[in-house]
């Protein structure tokens, strides 16, 4: 059950991903593609993979990037490494992940990137209820609005 049931993105979630639905209907932006990447266990692999990903994004030269993560804990290393890399390349980016009161990033958000917290449970905890703490349409709207704001 991934890290926890409430943040788990099911196959249906990917099929009906609110981030892509929103971007696909937007008047100002369009999705140029979706890069999916695995979160590895060890630090050397994390660095290697995020480095390759960053190089790829640099070559694609998008006007902006939305980075979402279905995980927390040590995975915030990958998340923050990527946001830092995008920031160094001057690519405007907004992140989304579960933080709440339980999943404070284990590494600092040194790029000071805007991150939308997808926690929705009253106590900010992993509730073991499927569908409670992952990205919904409202989170997607926030992320896209922030991206537009930062791009101007």
């Amino acid at each position: 059950m991934g890290i926890g049931p409430s943040t788990k993105e099911t196959t249906r979630h990917h099929f009906k991903d609110p981030l892509l639905e929103l971007l696909g209907d937007d008047n100002d932006c369009r999705p140029v593609g979706v890069i999916v990447v695995g979160i590895a266990a060890d630090y050397e692999s994390k660095k290697y993979i995020i480095d390759r990903l960053g190089t790829w994004v640099g070559a694609l030269k998008p006007d902006g990037a939305i980075v979402s993560m279905d995980s927390w804990g040590n995975s915030h290393i990958d998340f923050n490494l990527l946001l830092e890399k995008l920031s160094n390349m001057k690519i405007t980016a907004v992140g989304l992940c579960f933080q709440g009161k339980q999943a404070e990033p284990v590494t600092p958000n040194s790029s000071h990137a805007v991150v939308v917290d997808t926690s929705k449970s009253p106590g900010g905890r992993e509730t073991e209820i499927l569908g409670e703490n992952n990205i919904n349409r409202q989170d997607a709207r926030k992320a896209l609005a922030m991206l537009k704001l930062l791009s101007n």
């Binding site: 991934g2 369009r30 890069i35 695995g38 979160i39 994004v57 939305i66 979402s68 993560m69 998340f79």
Partner: peptide, 19 residues
Amino acid sequence: KKKVLLIKLLPGQGAMHDF
């Protein structure tokens, strides 16, 4: 339109951390 890239970081650490 402005080109926006979606990047999805997903678990890749074994058994139930895979896709």
